[in-house]
């Protein structure tokens, strides 16, 4: 019976099967469309809506007329206290927030998978690596981030310029402080996989460790990693906005959704929409990413699949 099941799967291909299962998850599908929409808004939007998000009218009289405007055709989301177009700022901010989420997740997943595979596969360094994981779990993120910025800002900014420099620093700092969960999950999977017949077989014919890892272990830990990665994006976007909320994130002339929300809170009584737009954008993005992660987990878990 199992043989026929495998046969059918092969015909459809493993990923086709996952996709078929994923499509049944209504929440995840809605989320996928929503996230797609948000991505288009941020990535394609600025090509259509060509207003500089940092443009300030230098003629004072004109500038005062442009301040704090409500929604209009010229500025669909209004303007801020310096007359900057909020729609353009939201698009620009979205790019940064999404980029931070994705890159920080990649960093975290890369470190997490490496540590997890190493710890699970090589018994000798398992204890050491897991203590390292515990150590990182007990570290406070905030001072770490400040220190990293302090130590490396000048060098990084000198090479890449202040904006890209801050971006890389924040992304690395978030990545370096959020890989631990992934490492634990991967280690658990690897520990189980190591005792499975196909790995034992590979070992018995003298396959070197590196090959076993790349050929047999990594493809099989892909699904938990994928799920962890999706959830990692959500966590990274939230972390970036918390940092901005605490005033430790990007510089103010470099809007991200978190930064816009933080700036908006100073105006929440007079112009609540300036909090609501970025707040909604963050919430919707994170919500969709989490839903997609949930859908992926269901689709990738063979025990739940088909029920």
């Amino acid at each position: 019976m199992t043989e026929t099941a495998v046969q059918i799967e092969k015909v459809r291909g493993p990923w086709g099967d996952v996709w078929a299962q994923f499509r049944k998850h209504k929440g995840a599908m809605t989320a996928l469309f929503l996230l797609g929409g948000l991505a288009v808004f941020c990535l394609i939007g600025p090509l259509v809506w060509r207003i500089d998000p940092n443009f300030i009218e230098s003629d004072t009289v004109k500038m005062f007329k442009m301040r704090n405007q409500g929604p209009s055709l010229a500025h669909p989301l209004g303007t801020d206290q310096l007359g900057r177009d909020m729609l353009a700022r939201m698009m620009f901010g979205g790019r940064i927030s999404l980029a931070v989420g994705t890159v920080a997740m990649l960093v975290a997943i890369f470190i997490g998978t490496t540590v997890g595979v190493m710890a699970g596969f090589f018994r000798r360094i398992d204890g050491l690596l897991m203590r390292l994981t515990d150590l990182f779990l007990a570290l406070p993120l905030l001072p770490l981030l400040l220190v990293m910025i302090f130590l490396f800002r000048d060098t990084v900014a000198g090479i890449l310029g202040p904006r890209l420099g801050t971006f890389l620093l924040i992304v690395m700092a978030i990545g370096l402080t959020s890989w631990m969960q992934a490492a634990r999950v991967v280690r658990g999977e690897v520990l189980a996989l190591k005792e499975r017949e196909f790995v034992l077989a590979a070992r018995s014919i003298g396959t070197p460790s590196r090959r076993i890892i790349t050929r047999h272990i990594l493809p099989n830990v892909l699904s938990p990693v994928l799920v962890a990665a999706t959830l990692g994006i959500a966590a990274a976007i939230i972390t970036e906005s918390v940092l901005s909320f605490l005033g430790l994130g990007f510089p103010p002339d470099f809007p991200t959704w978190g930064r816009l929300l933080y700036d908006g809170i100073a105006e929440i009584r007079t112009y609540p929409e300036r909090v609501i737009w970025p707040g909604l954008a963050i919430s919707l993005t994170v919500l969709s990413v989490n839903y997609i992660g949930d859908g992926l987990r269901d689709a990738l878990d063979p025990r739940i699949r088909g029920r």
């Binding site: 300030i56 003629d59 310096l82 202040p162 103010p252 002339d253 700036d263 100073a266």
Partner: peptide, 25 residues
Amino acid sequence: AVRQDFQALIKGWWNAIGIEVELKS
């Protein structure tokens, strides 16, 4: 917050007289 608004405004005025300004906070 106020200083960053000032920076942005003054940068605009100095740009208008032909000065390139880089901001740092």
